[in-house]
Write a protein that binds this DNA or RNA. Structure first.
Lengths: 224, 224
DNA sequence: ATAAATTAATTCATCGTTTAATTATTTGCA
DNA sequence: TGCAAATAATTAAACGATGAATTAATTTAT
């Protein structure tokens, strides 16, 4: 029977640089996340991830199989959990749009503060690239939040204070994306904004003002 | 002296598929532009461009040398000229902000109508990627427009109707970018927007409303 | 000693680029 | 005008680099 068929959990290797307690799998995921966020998913090589982790590329295959599954693990185990506090903040807020947006600001700030790699990853992969990550992040991570927001903003929409044509998912994407932009996102925004004059929430304030003012329905040739 | 030192200009080859009048160089630039816009600059291979053009990859080297110079040629000969009508529209507009924005909408619409490859390229490379194209497009193509807009919007800013902290270049980037988003830009916006309900100018209307409402100066800890 | 953990080395594919050969077009000259 | 030499245009093939993925060997812990 040998080892009784059950595999021993991975033990810490003696020679690992910083002998912290978290196991290597977590360490690899962090390295991958950092590279993905900084360089973009398509542009990061497994070699770069392995090098950053102080490990051989074959380790990534050992733990995750291939790049797709590595990405999947990064999403499941690091990305999606990081968005939970945001949702929690929204759950606590009432139905008042003002309180909701306030909670949104606070939730985003918390998430970004504890997960600094989120902004570039979000901006690059969700807002711009069309790969699988967008599908996953948009359809699996965000759905909880937009449903919530849709409920809460329903009153405001009925009042005509929000553009009825706006998809609630767009609301979330827009708010999150625009909030993250000045922080660490697209270089164009980093350049255009004066970081000293404009805090990371300024763009969000603008957006909220836009949404809150109620632009009204579109003046285009509405078909129906 | 043989051929008197002067080279004969490239003649149309007999075997070229569609024997249209424009020479092959133009044809190659169009193929490259299409691939760049659709796939992104870094992700498009010269082989893909050559295949789309119905040509061998070596032709790209023959005409342009390497990928960097091909990109340069695309920018100089196809991208930058395409933005000229926009500037012309703005030149015609007066100093009234309303007329200016109206001209901006019309100018953008015209540009997009005649150059459908511009939106994805703009969104992907200028707004998101940090490569050389951003430098080129932002520092060489846009400068004329923001200066113009800065002059024209000066009155509005003095009135406090525009956020004084906004870099005029950001204004242009934001307006152009957001205008282009729903048209053919980031997939996330394509999905979130209902194309039937929201015309291509709706997002711009939102932005203009945002800018026009005058969100006021930032409420952050201003250093000075 | 045995199985897990890790590495070194290899394979296959693709990309940018280059070189040499091939086809087409022009040109010089009788 | 005709016909060959010269030159431009185009292709085919290959090189070197890099990346993902795999395999086999080696180390480490129990």
């Amino acid at each position: 029977m040998a080892t009784s068929g059950k595999r021993a959990k991975p033990q810490r290797r003696a020679g690992r640089p910083s002998g912290d307690e978290k196991d290597l799998r977590r360490h690899l995921l962090d390295a991958a996340l950092g590279q993905f966020a900084r360089t973009g998913i398509a542009a990061t090589s497994l070699r770069a991830i392995a090098t950053e982790a102080g490990v051989t590329p074959a380790m990534l295959h050992y733990y995750f199989g291939d790049k797709a599954r590595l990405l999947q693990a990064v999403i499941d185990e690091r990305l999606l959990p990081s968005l939970a506090p945001l949702r929690a903040q929204l759950e606590l807020a009432g139905n008042d749009p003002a309180a909701l947006t306030e909670a949104f600001v606070r939730g985003i700030s918390d998430v970004v503060a504890s997960h600094p790699w989120l902004p570039p990853l979000w901006v690059r992969e969700v807002l711009c690239e069309g790969g699988a990550l967008r599908e996953i992040l948009f359809d699996r991570a965000v759905p909880g939040v937009p449903q919530l927001l849709a409920q809460r903003f329903a009153a405001a929409q009925a009042n005509g204070r929000l553009n009825a044509a706006l998809d609630p998912r767009l609301l979330v994407v827009s708010l999150v994306g625009l909030t993250l932009f000045p922080a660490a996102g697209a270089p164009i925004w980093r350049r255009a904004f004066d970081a000293e004059a404009l805090g990371p929430g300024a763009m969000l304030e603008h957006t909220l003002a836009l949404l809150g003012q109620g632009v009204g329905t579109t003046k285009r040739g509405e078909p129906a």
